[in-house]
Design a protein around this nucleic acid. Structure first.
Lengths: 363, 363
DNA sequence: CAGCCGACTGGAAACCTTTCCAGTCCGGAA
DNA sequence: TTCCGGACTGGAAAGGTTTCCAGTCGGCTG
């Protein structure tokens, strides 16, 4: 595979230098409620009542005010409203890494749902650094968000727990467990069910050494998957579980795979606990020319679009990330509307495929 | 491929119902600058000066104020600051679809860069609907963002152009061209270079019918790629270019492929203009059991992680989306700092691979 | 007919900061 | 000794809205 480089990197001349003339006089710039009031010949309080749909407003008043609003092209200053009302209609989304397809789909679901209720989404990446989790929470809190959606990098961090507690703001955890007695809503995936089905399938095929290469041990999905794997094998005395938690990275996937295959008793089946991990696993398997499913069976979690063309087809434990985001948003909206905290659990599906087959007979 | 469903969908009981006791008295709640001033026995203006690092402040004053700030755990109210200063230190990011890996990486680059300068990112998806582009711009404008990062769904929309013009706010276009004389910064990809190299490569292999299955014709990348393809073939009289613009969707990729292959003169090479389109193309090729590169050569744009395991390896026109986002953010920060508008062009790389081979001899 | 209530409106405080302006005090220069 | 400027500080306006409170007025009840 050869690589040709092309294109230059430069910064070209500006397209134009002149600022456009100040907008037509009717613009919103500098037009405040008092101008409207003056124009309509009424008090500011009346303007405010009309605009906020207050009940005690006569038709005549409404008409006069609306006319003035039209004429002046008045638009309320949201900052002043936020200050006065003490609410920003803004939600903070703290996420380990938005470039992860799983999380960006969650973000899409959340933002779409929130926007339907006139909330905006403030995005903060923590690049999987627990300190940034806490810092971002603090930062968004200072920006006075009305609520939080948290997909933390590390739920065990003291600082993060403190930061969450300090905010005293409605918070929805996304597939995370925070070890705190404070009430918190959450939307969770039922990882156990997916792993259980996958393991049943593998055991049914005759596998006796099943390895889970998992991500960070400091987040719920990893813990749940590990627990589910070990639990599922309690009834199968002959089958051994191996677990390799680490990080949700290609590097970990690759290193763990290498390590396992070099070990005395390599697994007959691997479950890759995330799409980046999968890449690492596949890379190492390819480098060793290990054939799936002939030499090793493979299951992955949280598929990505192109996975469907992988040969052989990959068995996958799926969930619906858009729906997770949407649900998280709904839970938050409910809380902001005064409802109690609530935990929603969303299902997981296991799709068997030809990447799983009976293990090779023992050599 | 069988599918077992597992897991239940439910909403479980809340974890707790009691609110935690109001935080210790020193909390920021209700603590304003005037409390600090009173506690320190100075005027509010002095507190403000100390906190904003104004020059004319005595050491004694600074110490007293800071002590009071510490004791009260005072945190400034950013909403009041925003209102007073008329700046929010917030940037609006309008994007067709954040769940697209290309765009989510751009978002990551942008957010990371912006946060380093204390700006926050307000995210708005337009789900590829031009009306929502305009609406989101308007919405974010009302929220008084200091600047815009725009990855529009349709740069030809009147409403969008008007919305942009109306805001009179520093704006960076991301790989888009807005037909307006207003000055606008932009970060662009040099698609032409990538396409040119790819076409040279294909022509070198002997291809005579090269098809570009492109995305929406209403955005710059599509136009640039089409132009580049046609231009590149001007010097190769025997080679025919076909172009199938449509949408950045799997459906379009699949339909266009079907259409082409059913046509009288099917292409010998296809360039898929995006990762979703690629999925559609591959699906149709797989359904017809068309072998790459034996029956058809394939090039794709904007790869995704798993693409590297596709067999055969996919020739790809790449760019660095994180860097695009970071560059866009830098351009915006510069504009916010008073600099003139500027256009940055980032390179594109073509990587040849075994998905391209000489075409089958004519039947 | 007095009294009262309800519908409606205006005035002003409150939200919290930044910034302009004026004023105090002191040291140094004339 | 007087004047001036610089260093520093306090007061108050401004930024734009929401909301409480008080007040007016017409109509209805007793």
């Amino acid at each position: 595979m050869s690589t040709e480089s092309s294109g230059q990197r430069n910064t070209a001349a500006p397209r134009s230098r002149t600022r456009p003339a100040r907008k037509s006089a009717a613009a919103s710039a500098g037009t405040g409620m008092s101008q409207v009031a003056e124009r309509a010949g009424v008090a500011m309080s009346s303007v405010s009542r009309v605009l906020s749909g207050h009940a005690d407003v006569s038709e005549a008043m409404r008409a006069r005010v609306m006319a003035a609003v039209e004429e002046l092209g008045y638009q309320p200053n949201m900052l002043a409203q936020m200050l006065r009302r003490g609410a920003t209609r803004t939600v903070g989304f703290v996420v380990g890494d938005i470039s992860n397809p799983l999380l960006s789909q969650i973000a899409l679901g959340a933002e779409t749902t929130l926007r339907a209720s006139d909330y905006a989404l403030l995005l903060a990446n923590s690049v999987n650094d627990p300190r940034l989790d806490a810092e971002n929470i603090q930062l968004l809190h200072q920006r006075r968000v009305d609520g939080f959606l948290l997909s933390l990098s590390d739920e065990t961090s003291e600082q993060t727990a403190e930061a969450v507690a300090r905010t005293d703001t409605p918070t929805i955890l996304i597939d995370r467990d925070l070890p705190t007695r404070a009430p918190t809503s959450a939307v969770l995936s039922d990882h156990r069910a997916g792993i259980t089905r996958a393991v049943e399938h593998l055991v049914g095929l005759g596998h006796e050494r099943i390895t889970l290469i998992a991500g960070s041990p400091h987040v719920r999905p990893t813990r749940e998957r590990i627990d589910a794997l070990e639990e599922a094998l309690e009834d199968s005395p002959g089958v051994v579980a191996q677990v390799r938690p680490g990080a949700f990275t290609e590097a970990h996937g690759r290193a763990a795979t290498r390590d396992l295959l070099d070990g005395r008793r390599p697994p007959t089946a691997i479950i890759a606990g995330g799409n980046q991990i999968l890449v690492g696993v596949l890379a190492e398997l390819a480098a060793r020319e290990i054939r799936i499913p002939h030499d090793l069976s493979l299951v992955t979690c949280d598929d990505v679009p192109l996975a469907q063309f992988f040969t052989p087809a990959l068995a996958t434990i799926r969930r619906d990330p858009y729906e997770m985001g949407a649900t998280a948003a709904r839970l938050l909206l409910a809380r902001l509307g005064g409802a109690a905290d609530e935990v929603a659990t969303l299902p997981t599906q296991f799709s068997a495929a030809s990447s799983c087959a009976p293990p090779r007979p023992r050599q």
